[in-house]
């Protein structure tokens, strides 16, 4: 093998490259997981609403529902909120005198249990069955992995074996 004289250096470079890729893969895995969660949560929500509407034989009154997408801002009732709004309602400015939280709709869906507990890796056998049925085959390994608990290490699902 024609190993270059600076092969020690090259090993080091590869080591750095390896670390960098591992980091990126980790990030992309959580990105993919989030997308899967969103897909499952949304499908569950739609299914639930469809069933409820069928049972009730009519859609719920429009003033009792909030369509996605939305954002939630919650704070203590004691918080004083100062709000200015432009006339056309294109611009808002809120001043809170205390802490607040911002959540997206997906967070609400998760709290409603629409993600089958996958978001925290707490998934009953039944939950997992439902979750698996809501994603395409290619994503099932990821769902199974998520059901086992929060992911800390990089894992590689089938198909990418050595050489």
């Amino acid at each position: 093998i024609g190993l270059p004289t600076n092969s020690a250096q090259e090993c080091q470079n590869l080591e750095v490259e390896r670390q960098r890729r591992l980091e990126r893969i980790k990030q992309k895995q959580s990105q993919l997981q989030e997308l899967i969660l969103q897909q499952i949560a949304f499908k569950n929500l739609v299914q639930r609403n469809r069933q409820t509407e069928q049972q009730a034989n009519r859609p719920p009154p429009s003033n009792s529902i909030i369509h996605l997408p939305f954002i939630i801002v919650n704070t203590s009732k004691k918080t004083v909120i100062d709000c200015s709004i432009s006339n056309d309602k294109f611009e808002y400015l809120f001043n809170f005198d205390s802490m607040f939280e911002i959540h997206d709709d997906i967070e609400v869906l998760k709290r409603m249990g629409m993600a089958c507990g996958l978001e925290v890796g707490k998934c009953s056998a039944e939950d997992l069955k439902v979750a698996r049925s809501l994603v395409p085959k290619a994503l099932e390994p990821y769902v199974i992995e998520m059901a086992k608990g929060p992911i800390s290490n990089v894992y590689i699902t089938g198909g990418s074996s050595a050489n």
Binding site: L45, L68, I72, N74, K77
Partner: peptide, 23 residues
């Protein structure tokens, strides 16, 4: 069909002292 009910929201932020604002 992509909606939540107001009671879903209330339950999700289930603290009696919380004010929940929807944007």
């Amino acid at each position: 069909l992509g909606y939540v009910r107001c009671q879903d929201l209330r339950k999700s932020f289930d603290s009696p002292d919380q004010l929940v604002m929807v944007i």
